[in-house]
């Protein structure tokens, strides 16, 4: 179960996928080792399609993948990948009449864990770690959206997978639970997660890929993403029509993104600034 640090966990090369007329993925490449990798982008950017491919749920039209050093196109290697993988889809669609315990135990069955006592202990451990110890025997239909999400998260983590693929994992979680998510994610050596919430990227990810319209537009660290907007952000007391974007901050001052005028009070960019700058370039 050990992975050499020099071997990349994910090696993705020029993946494409077309649905009818739409190109969901238009040549996506990605290379990542251990740690939490964030996938950022608007709805329809292709994040879910990419995650499905990494989770071996969907085959690409063209391109290649190497996950944990194995090739999912080969049936034998694919089963091996699936044994070391955990997947949280965007809409989990869990059976409402099951209890969280039923569901996580059942996923453990699907993951070929035959020892009933082991499954019980693992299910308990996971449900306790996501804070659902008290409701583990109540039917899923009675739980809130955030709780359902946590059940799915627990199911994804059965067997402590080496590779975790999470599609919008923080959906429906409150701030406290998002914090707990960080410690949960540290259990897996490689985590690929998507989000359209920029602050999550800063809080959780060591590296980030930004996708627009089925292509990767940025690959680097969160700091580098913020750095895209260096020298392009300034603050002022009023609106500025020359800025690409302006908004009022909590202090009442105005923050602008664009080409700063001479003598403007330039400030350090945040992740949001970097992302917005990138998005703006995309729409030119």
């Amino acid at each position: 179960m050990t992975i050499l640090t020099s071997v990349a966990s994910l090696e993705i090369d020029e993946l494409t996928k077309t649905y009818g007329r739409t190109k969901a993925l238009d040549g996506v490449s990605l290379s990542a080792g251990r740690g939490v990798i964030g996938l950022l982008g608007p709805n329809g950017a292709g994040k879910t399609t990419l995650l499905r491919m990494v989770a071996t749920v969907l085959a690409p039209d063209s391109g290649s993948l190497r996950l944990l050093g194995l090739d999912p196109a080969d049936p034998g290697q694919r089963i091996e990948i699936r044994r070391r993988l955990g997947y949280l889809p965007q809409s989990p669609g869990l059976y409402a009449n099951f209890t969280p315990f039923d569901l996580v135990d059942y996923v453990a069955v699907l993951k070929e864990h035959t020892d009933r006592d082991w499954r019980r202990d693992e299910t308990r451990r996971l449900l306790e770690s996501v804070g659902l110890a008290d409701v583990m025997h109540q039917k899923i239909r009675r739980l809130s959206g955030g709780m359902k999400q946590r059940v799915a998260l627990a199911a994804a983590m059965v067997g402590s997978p080496d590779l975790l693929v999470l599609d919008e994992p923080a959906n429906g979680l409150d701030p406290d639970q998002r914090l707990q998510l960080r410690s949960l994610l540290s259990q897996s050596s490689t985590v690929l997660m998507s989000t359209h919430n920029i602050s999550e990227v800063g809080a959780l990810c060591q590296s980030v890929y930004v996708m627009f319209s089925g292509r990767v537009r940025f690959a680097g660290t969160p700091a580098e993403l913020a750095g895209l907007a260096v020298g392009r952000v300034w603050e002022d007391d009023s609106q500025d029509p020359r800025a690409i974007r302006s908004w009022m901050t909590a202090t009442g001052a105005f923050r602008h993104l664009g080409e700063p005028p001479a003598g403007a009070q330039v400030v350090d960019p945040t992740l949001d600034d970097g992302y917005l700058f990138l998005a703006r370039q995309e729409h030119r």
Binding site: R82, Y87, S91, P92, F98, Y106, A152
Partner: peptide, 8 residues
């Protein structure tokens, strides 16, 4: 019962 999770 596990929906799309089962596919992986």
């Amino acid at each position: 019962p596990a929906g799309e999770i089962s596919l992986a």
